[in-house]
Write a protein that binds this DNA or RNA. Structure first.
Length: 598
RNA sequence: CGGGAUGUAGCACAGCUUGGCUAGUGCGCCUGGUUUGGGACCAGGAGGUCGCAGGUUCAAAUCCUGCCAUCCCGACCA
């Protein structure tokens, strides 16, 4: 089919839109693929529509290939099912809620677990019906506090979500594996180089969970990747390896020392290094390798937070981490879920006079101590390691305090920040921290939704069994942006052939009335007859420079130029992906382009 | 939700400090002409509630107050 630029509904912009920061947003707007229509909402223009539809089609084909069946729910959903699972309230301010004329509550679906579960419950009742895999490609709504980066994070977006229904855990595992394999194929076809990372299943309450991330500086997710082995994990899911215990038999006895004016770790370290009577011993410092001087890694920092539990109660939690590391809020929240983390406020200190802000030490921490504060240690605080930490009185610290000898805790919690070059938990090599765009998420939901919504089937013995579910998502509109993030250069977009809106862009670059127009038309007709989608720049009165710039900006994988070479019987063929330019005799061009597009 | 910035034509921006005559520039768009291999040129033209509301003033794009929106950083994000 021939699409003529003279009539195509598109307008390219010479300047970058001021609001766009990330490359995909900038280029998709500038090249006339999308237009902003609302905060976090974009209009798809014809070229953008074609990319979106091709992405959808790839997703659809791979889902169908594993035997999943497509359905389609309304986006406007009733409140009741979401009340039953608690998500009407649990989803918080991110849920778009609205009312009809009678004041009845509705929501715009942020994800459809409830509806799928009820649909299967509605129609199926026997183990013979299982497994069944259903999916939809749907517009989802989330009232994001801060939509940003164009398509990468909108309040309205297209997502493929599918759900598997199985009788038992083995079945769920098979469903999960099938989806995981389909996702690998989908992202390969989309031209996205994804990494699969372990993820936290969070409040959804499942067991296995993995995210498909497209590595990219504009991404919002942080993950680690081992430089040597194949370990990859979302930062929330990172578990540091076992740290060997330390022999503390040679460590001097713990003693309290005067440390006036040491409100921060750094001032404390400086003071210690000025004191000749306080020498570092081999068991001091678990993390830092420098033998002589004290460092922040020798100190034990005790961080206090309040946990807010689902029943509304609040309990304090103390976390001991090496002083050179912060507690990572995201990791902490993932670790204590479903409880939520609140700051330990002044009122919380006031009601516990035993806590001396800035000088908190293990002496007063622990469930069995009078204050009854649960005390968990970072895994780096191993048995036998000695620490400098607060002595629970202003201006005093204790040195050579040995874990296991001088203090104990209630357990271990791995929520300290993860750093670039931290050791890999499986092989010990260095971890690298990278950013990525979350493109897909697969996880084993388990029976949570089936249980509360009453999805049961009769097993072969005639007994009611609660169905176990999996949930699998692909960000479809986000994929368009992620592909653009990955496939562009200084000049513009460079679509992979699998999703490009057109196969080839034919440019007429001659003078009106010369042979270039007919040559281009003839080529376009031939390519079209072969089944290719041809974008033909047949605009009048547009200079060649503009045509070249537009062709590069619009990003079709192949550009053919009918220009001054036509007089010599050649056309110029540019491979936008490979970056090559070749001149070919006119009668060979069609075959070349068709072969390259296959 | 906290911090910062911005809001003037389809796009990018100037003008605001120090209020004043018809609100400007470039790109894009329309008409005519000249051009035609890297975002052409000449001439003429269309297009604006200066984010919204209120206030101060003889007079407000400009000063004041409130609101709204957008972008960036952070918090949040199945």
């Amino acid at each position: 089919m021939i699409h003529r630029l003279s009539t195509l509904f598109v307008r390219t912009l010479r300047d970058d839109p001021a609001e766009a920061e990330v490359p995909s947003h900038r280029l998709l707007v500038r090249a006339g693929y999308i237009r902003r229509a609302a905060p976090g909402g974009y209009t798809w223009l014809p070229l953008g529509m074609r990319v979106l539809q091709r992405v959808e089609q790839i997703v659809r084909e791979e889902m169908n290939a594993i035997g999943a069946q497509e359905v389609h729910f309304p986006a406007l959903l009733p409140r009741e099912p979401y009340d039953a699972t608690g998500r009407w309230t649990d989803y918080g301010p991110n849920l778009f809620r609205l009312q009809d004329r009678r004041g009845v509550d509705y929501l715009l679906g942020p994800t459809h677990e409830e509806m799928f579960t009820l649909l299967v419950k509605d129609l199926y009742g026997s183990y013979k019906d299982l497994p069944v895999w259903l999916y939809q490609i749907q517009t989802k709504y989330r009232d994001e506090a801060r939509p940003r980066a164009g398509l990468l994070r909108g309040r309205e977006f297209v997502m493929k979500d599918s759900y598997s229904f199985d009788l038992d855990d083995d079945g769920l595992q098979r469903s999960y594996d099938a989806h995981r394999a389909a996702y690998v194929k989908i992202f390969a076809r989309l031209g996205l180089d994804v990494v699969i990372v372990k993820a936290m299943s969070g409040a959804m309450g499942g067991s296995a969970s993995e995210e498909f991330l497209s590595p990219c500086a504009s991404g919002e997710d942080t993950f680690v990747r081992c430089s040597a082995c194949d370990y990859r994990a979302n930062t929330e899911a990172v578990r540091i390896g076992t740290v060997p215990a330390i022999d503390a038999s040679g460590t001097p006895a713990a003693r309290v020392v005067d440390t006036p004016n040491t409100p921060t770790i750094q001032t404390l370290v400086d003071l210690l290094n000025g004191r000749d009577d306080l020498r570092r011993t081999p068991s001091d410092a678990s993390a830092s390798g420098n033998a002589g001087a004290w460092s922040a890694a020798d100190t034990l920092k005790n961080v206090l937070v309040m946990l807010r539990h689902p029943d509304g109660s609040r309990t304090p939690l103390a976390i001991g981490v090496p002083g050179d590391r912060e507690v990572d809020t995201k990791r902490l929240e993932a670790a204590v879920s479903p409880a939520e983390v609140d700051a330990f406020g002044d009122a919380d200190f006031a009601s516990r006079p035993g806590l001396v802000k800035g000088y908190i030490g293990p002496d007063v921490l622990g469930e069995k101590k009078p204050l009854g504060i649960r005390y968990l240690l970072d895994p780096r605080v191993v048995a036998g390691s000695a620490w400098v930490t607060g002595a629970n009185e202003p201006g005093h610290h204790v040195v050579h305090l040995v874990h296991g000898r001088d203090f104990t805790a209630d357990g271990v919690i791995d929520v300290a920040e993860v750093r670039d070059t931290d050791p890999c938990p499986t092989c010990g090599s260095h971890l690298r921290i990278e950013r990525g765009i979350e493109m897909g998420h697969v996880f084993q939901l388990g029976r949570k939704y089936a249980e509360v919504l009453g999805l049961q089937v009769l097993d072969e013995k005639g007994k009611q069994r609660v169905v176990t579910m999996g949930s699998y998502g692909v960000g479809v509109s986000r994929a368009v942006a992620a592909i653009a993030e990955l496939h562009h250069d200084q000049l513009g977009l460079r679509w992979p052939r699998s999703v490009a809106p057109m196969d080839v862009h034919v440019v007429i670059a001659g003078k009106p009335g010369d042979d270039t127009g007919p040559a281009a038309e003839a080529l376009a007709a031939e390519l079209s007859k072969a089944g290719l989608h041809v974008l033909l720049d047949d605009r009048d009165g547009v200079s060649p420079g503009v045509r070249f710039k537009d062709a590069e900006l619009l990003g079709m994988p192949m550009i053919v130029i009918a220009g001054r070479g036509v007089a010599k019987g050649v056309l110029e063929v540019r491979d936008r992906i490979a970056g090559t330019t070749t001149e070919l005799p006119i009668d060979q061009v069609a075959a070349h382009v068709i072969a390259a597009s296959a």
